[in-house]
């Protein structure tokens, strides 16, 4: 087999070879840090939710706790979740809680500040299963609920009569 060299072919090889080397030089540090940045996490059916909740509240394995709290409530009633505007942690916590609250219908309230008194006072407690506070303060007039880690509190307003 003979290989014919020409200036065009040499320029072609040099161009693409140079681009390949430059690309690799640019990418490898980024890929390397991406590969080595995180250790292996524990596995489990809810491992993503658990990771999010641990990140936001510091509590481990909180997904199961939340699910069992929500399961103890009347499924036909809605769950109200309060989150703070301009607080990504609070918003993320609220959405993760909404995910876990199925099959309950949910309603997310994004409030300015940390006191949801106004919004809560307008609600009919008979229509609610629970109120969840995500990095939002529970009003003093509401009884204390189940606190998960720091910044997440679930106040049940309608628990099932019979509990296992």
């Amino acid at each position: 087999m003979t290989v014919r060299f020409s200036y065009g072919r040499i320029a072609h090889v040099l161009l693409w070879g140079g681009l390949a080397v430059a690309s690799l030089g640019m990418s490898i540090p980024k890929i390397y840090s991406g590969v080595t940045q995180y250790p292996l996490r524990p596995t489990g059916p809810l491992h993503t939710c658990d990771s999010y909740l641990k990140f936001a509240t510091g509590a481990s394995g909180a997904s199961k706790d939340l699910i069992s709290i929500f399961q103890s409530m009347t499924a036909s009633k809605r769950i109200i979740i309060f989150t703070r505007k301009d607080d990504a942690f609070s918003s993320g916590l609220g959405m993760t809680t909404a995910y876990l609250a199925s099959p309950h219908l949910v309603r997310l309230f994004e409030i300015s500040g940390t006191h949801p008194d106004n919004e809560l006072s307008k609600m009919n407690p008979d229509e609610l299963a629970a109120v969840v506070f995500c990095r939002v303060n529970r009003p003093n007039w509401l009884p204390a609920g189940k606190v998960i880690g720091s910044g997440l509190e679930v106040v049940s307003t309608s628990e099932k009569k019979v509990r296992r």
Partner: peptide, 11 residues
């Protein structure tokens, strides 16, 4: 396996 599902991946 090292990473969790991303935000949109989950929600």
């Amino acid at each position: 396996f090292v990473h969790t599902l991303g935000w949109d991946g989950l929600l």
